[in-house]
Design a protein around this nucleic acid. Sequence first.
DNA 1: AGCACGCCGACT
DNA 2: GTCGGCGTGCTC
Length: 662
Amino acid sequence: MPEGGSRPSIARVWIDSPLPQLDRLFDYRIPPELDADIAIGVRVRVPWRSAGRFVDAYVIDIVDSVDFTGVLSLVETVVSPVPVLAAEVALLSRRASERAAGSAIDIVRVAVPTRQARVEKAWLAAGEPPRLPRVEAVEVTGYEKGVVERAITDGSRLAIDAVPLGSQRESGWISRWALTLAEAATQSLAGGKSAILAVPDFRDQEQLAAALDSLLPPERIVRLDARQSNPDRYRAFLKCLGADPVVIVGNRSVIYAPARRLGLIALWDDGDPLYGEPLAPYVNTRDAALLRQEQQAAALIFIGHSRSTEVERLVELGWLDAVAPSPSVLPKVIPTAQQAGGDRMAAQARIPSTAWTAARVALESGPVLVQVARPGYAPRLACTECGQSARCLRCEGPLAQKSARSIPACAWCGALAVDWHCENCAGTRMRLVGAGGASRTAEELGRAFPGVRIIVADGDRPILSVDSEPALVIATRGAEPVASGGYRAVLLLDGERMAARESLRVGEDCLRWWSNATALAARGAPTYLVGVGGALAQALATWRQSEYAREELADRRRLRFPPAVRVATVTGTLDAVASAIGALEIPAEDVLGPVETGPGAVRTIVRFDYAAGTGLAADLRAEVIRSATSRRRALAGKSAGPAIPANLRVRFDDVEPFETGL
DNA sequence: AGCACGCCGACT
DNA sequence: GTCGGCGTGCTC
């Protein structure tokens, strides 16, 4: 504060509006009666020439003079004196939005939960809580002594291969990756700094919460996730603003938590698509984490059982240091490329005899996990006679139907299945079966293993953990419960169908799903990967996911596909898209499209090297603003009817065009 | 988004 | 001469 002089009296604010042309600072004079309450980060209401009389805004800066030559309006009211938009989060929002050609305020909306007046009042009345006792650092086990600890002290960046095991704690059986993160968090806290730990979904969150509970007092742990009620969420958010460093655990948006002295940012399983923000400007948590790490000089950890191609790219660049478990832990994985014969019952037809026998033996001592594909999303064509999956006669690929009446075609080579016959029983007709799905498999296996306890876990029936008693646990991928003591055997049943999905990421996705399920097995217990061969099976069997990621990334480089390059999709009316693309300095071979995506809408994909991203984002941003401020209603006239989409929309790092065919 | 400003056709 | 059409542009 200037000596003797009056305090700066102009608030620079971000207006809470989705309009891209308003994504900048506006200046308001601070009336003396509000001076005491206004601080950087508080929410205010300011007069606005249009759109009603007032709008919400965040104070980004407080200064004593501005360049603006017009007459400044006065701040109307202070919504609350709590500085909910921390300066570093505002800066992160700005950087992340710039990188994605979007508005900072759109990220702020994700970063700051809705205010709960009652909760806030109680928090303000309670005042500063007493300081917490010092946290003792816990050694990070399972890795070369001191490696992870040093990285946290130094604020460096790691890609860690998780230990594919579980561990018994007082609170129950906990996956080792969760313990590793909890141990790492204690290191950060002991150094007087907060930690942000991000997980894709609630079941991972439960694992991590249990691990943290076993090492830290509850006052040091803040849960900030999407499943909380608004009051709970706001209460947790306010707790982050306290003076003591805390561990903040949550889903994708936790990356924007207001952690001031931030010592560690960690993401579990960064390849999970749940880290993709569905709201504009669609910033992936991984990218936000990378920006925030640089900005606040925190340590950064990506940990998983498999490695995403994005992380592999950063490892190859030297941006991340790879760390593997020491001593190394290799799960026992047995790929069985061939399907079992079709001469048995339906359930057995899907399980080769070796795996079948192993499951039977394992069931004598404890739980067995059967992972199946999610139901209904890739119905299978099977021989009407024997039930065996219909395969392409030319390349053995899986057959699929585009629509109910179309001729089935191979998902791999595209050959139409005319004059088809079953290679197993020579039947000539096939039918669509809603193959997979936990319920159906449970039914089949229930008949095949009479007397065995069957537990079904899927999206509708979430189960977090099972005991160590014998049971067949049938789970859709991603919904696998943790078994106390680990599963005695794991069967990855629908690998073939999972791998038949047509998607750029299908390989790394499968490897991630299978690796995560494999890591739930007890030490030495077998995992059977059914119906899959080749590089994928090899990678899982040798537990060398990073080598697979390296080859995968090399392929993407050859093809100029992400993440070897970045992409952006430009969507809108043909004219708007054409003129936006025309304004870019980009070689023609990196412009893909336009293709029609709807009535009057087209989409063009541009791809570019990382170094060109900043410039391209700025150019496209300018086009979006230009399109929004000039000749709105390009073809709408004033006719009633469905609202026409914005003339021009831009989305960076959109994977959707590469996820064809679900 | 809203809403005001502004520059051309039919009217008292 | 003026009332009003909605294209264009601004919002501290």
